[in-house]
Nucleic acid binder design. Structure first.
Lengths: 251, 251
DNA sequence: CGAGTGGTTGAAGAGTGTCAAACAGTGTGG
DNA sequence: CCACACTGTTTGACACTCTTCAACCACTCG
């Protein structure tokens, strides 16, 4: 448990709030507007009136669309510091996806859309902040999209593991999956069985699965398996950790 | 050929310029900044310094990433009225995809990034306009992404045809493909052969292919084939033309 | 006429989805 | 402490779709 005091200290360092004027910040931040969601709780449903914008303080949130048959296409999995729902206030006014807490201890700061829109009208700095946030979101969507076309299942899984472990230092380590494997499978646009099999295939690259913990011997080996096929340019994706290839003999 | 006079008249109705103040418009529009690109010409390359933002006046532009092996993942295919490159000026400063003219008569209005950024700083209305444009882009990416997970190839092709023919009135008609089938295949994340076969499969639904012309007997039949499986909510995708299903007997 | 391009078609194989069964971990209640 | 249910995951068998690679066709242009 974190005290309320330290929550403010935490979120003030989020990219979204970073460099924001005190006035803007106070306008948006309200301790009472922090909501806790248990695992699997619905934050909002596709088609709901978009009256709030969310900042993730802790945990993971899954955004997805669903058709009548219940087939899911996961749009994004977001975590600490990420903002969602922001695009609806300028376009539409309805959430065009559903948001659901995955994993435990999901805490969201909920900002009324009206307040945010009002603030964008009044504060120029804040408009630019929003533009930055959206630009970044577009780029993130692009990276996630590229992963989906990354060829076979084992590469896609490798890509996900690389990105999830990008904050870890050292040669290798144990990655604790922040959400269920079935969720990860949906995120990668594949079947749960396929995910399981693909993960097993990665044992040749020094990746062993033990429940929700994934033991990765060498991050750069793992990264090399997928990133060498990835179209995303160098430097944009945190997951990329391959040793940079010397172009000595390449034509 | 359109005269320069009428170009201004045309683009002033684009969503991007609509409701823009005269000052903002004059700041961005410059007749000399309109460039013509022949088919297959590169507008910019992935990794280039992002110094311009583009508005499509006519033709089609393909945005894609490419890995070292030359494998392409098409991000988007854009056309008249669409804006691209806009997110780079607030995030990065480099194009993280390549842009290429597909189809003939591709004409782009090229706005210097610096001018656009400056204008966003000075004009509040304009910032909001940018926010709207980006929001819309996020939504578009979502729709395109949903199509990619839409199950089998014939559905994905049907989805594309539905969207491309959404402006056509009447029960059916002849759709002229605005770009090559191989490009369409990439857009849908499938092989060219698969595209060809999938299109052939659609003959059962009254879709006949004759070179670059596609004869569609009944738009709603075509739409029903894919849109009934699509997770995108009603009203957001122009391609959707199914007869609304009566929920009389449904549970 | 031959070369070049875009598109179609065929056969073979790899990769996934599907379905079902088995398994491990957890919590519950007797 | 054990039986039981429940959930998330793994595994096997099989069908099916898509990719690959190649040959072929239609069309255009020199």
């Amino acid at each position: 448990m974190i005290s309320k005091k330290s929550i403010k200290q935490t979120i003030i360092d989020f990219p979204f709030f970073k460099d924001m004027t005190g006035v803007d910040f106070d306008f948006l931040f309200n301790e009472d507007a922090i909501e806790n969601y248990p695992k699997r709780a619905l934050v909002f449903k596709q088609g709901d009136k978009a009256d709030r914008v969310f900042v993730i303080i802790s945990g993971w949130v899954k955004l997805n669309n669903m058709n009548e048959e219940g087939n899911i296409s996961a749009v994004q999995l977001l975590t600490v510091g990420d903002v969602f729902g922001i695009e609806t206030i300028f376009d539409g006014g309805f959430y065009f996806y559903s948001a659901e807490a995955v994993g435990d201890e999901c805490r969201l700061l909920e900002i009324p859309s009206a307040a945010l829109k009002e603030r964008a009208r009044l504060s120029h700095n804040f408009s630019v902040k929003l533009l930055n946030t959206m630009s970044h979101k577009i780029q993130d969507m692009q990276i996630a999209g590229a992963c989906l076309i990354l060829g076979d299942a084992s590469r896609r899984v490798a890509c996900l593991l690389s990105r999830l472990s990008s904050w870890m230092v050292g040669k290798g380590g144990v990655l604790k999956l922040p959400y269920e494997k079935s969720v990860a499978a949906i995120q990668l646009g594949m079947n749960q069985s396929t995910f399981s099999r693909a993960l097993a295939q990665l044992e040749d690259l020094g990746v062993k699965s033990d429940g929700s913990e994934i033991i990765i011997n060498d991050f750069s080996t793992l990264s090399g398996h997928c990133c060498s096929h990835c179209p995303i340019p160098e430097g944009l994706c945190d997951g990329r950790r391959m040793e940079s290839v010397k172009k000595s003999k390449a034509v």
